[in-house]
Design a protein around this nucleic acid. Structure first.
Lengths: 127, 127
DNA sequence: GTATATGCAAACCATTTGCATCAGT
DNA sequence: ACTGATGCAAATGGTTTGCATATAC
């Protein structure tokens, strides 16, 4: 089951990589349509789902609402959903991994993956 | 828009409170059916959704897979999805709130809600 | 040339909604 | 009595799937 590099897959990866907007499935489709108006909805779903399975893309649930956003999984970080501007902001916290390890040792469990999503007001909207 | 205490709502709350199993919507429905075989699927959805809106119940997304689990929101805690037994285990970490506050101050943001979900191996399966 | 990926449309299925009825206050 | 909640069934809508075709290798 070898993978192939298709034009569609490249478009989708470019969208996730270039725009730091953490798009939803629908937004990815809309953006992809601008690059190639023949691209199918199903192609976007199939590609994104495979990328998530393979660990190259993270699926971010919303804290309050429904739906998911997607992000390239380049370096581990956290997301803040801003209640004011609606954007999803990347948060890099140095001690995150340390904190997770502490939970693991305190509770005698093994933690393989973790997901931290925040909701509040971003730096920009606070001003 | 006053709330009313119905038999169905009490059954649903009892299920969430008594069983510490973090059930899915479907599981809540199945359990509720055992108490009252006339209860409707829509009633379960409507009640759970309202409880989540009101903040009495938390909706827990899965880290890897699809779907949600529900839990009474009595005191703040984290959840570990065990890859071995499949259960969702409550994790109480004293410094959780402190850690979230630290993120907020480090990044100059206001954090109103947060969600931490873990995936790995629980204490029991590790043995 | 072969097998994987695509596009389209149909199928799927969890969730929501409209409506008449029931029941809590 | 009034109005919110229920149960049923139908509608909805995001996601998946079947299939013939296109295309990467």
């Amino acid at each position: 089951m070898n993978q192939r590099n298709t034009k569609q897959k490249e478009i989708i990866l470019k969208i996730l990589d270039e725009n730091r907007i953490h798009p939803t499935m629908q937004e990815i489709y809309d953006l992809a349509k601008k690059e190639d108006q023949n691209i199918g909805q199903a192609t976007v779903y199939r590609n994104i789902n495979k990328l998530v399975e393979d660990g190259m893309v993270i699926k971010i649930p919303s804290v309050g609402e429904e739906g998911y956003h997607y992000d390239i999984n380049n370096h581990p970080h956290t997301h803040l959903v801003c209640n004011s501007c609606g954007k999803i902001i990347d948060i890099f916290e140095n001690d995150y991994e340390k904190f997770i390890k502490k939970i693991a040792s305190n509770n005698s469990v093994i933690i393989k993956k973790s997901l931290l999503v925040l909701e509040g007001i971003c730096n920009n909207c606070k001003k």
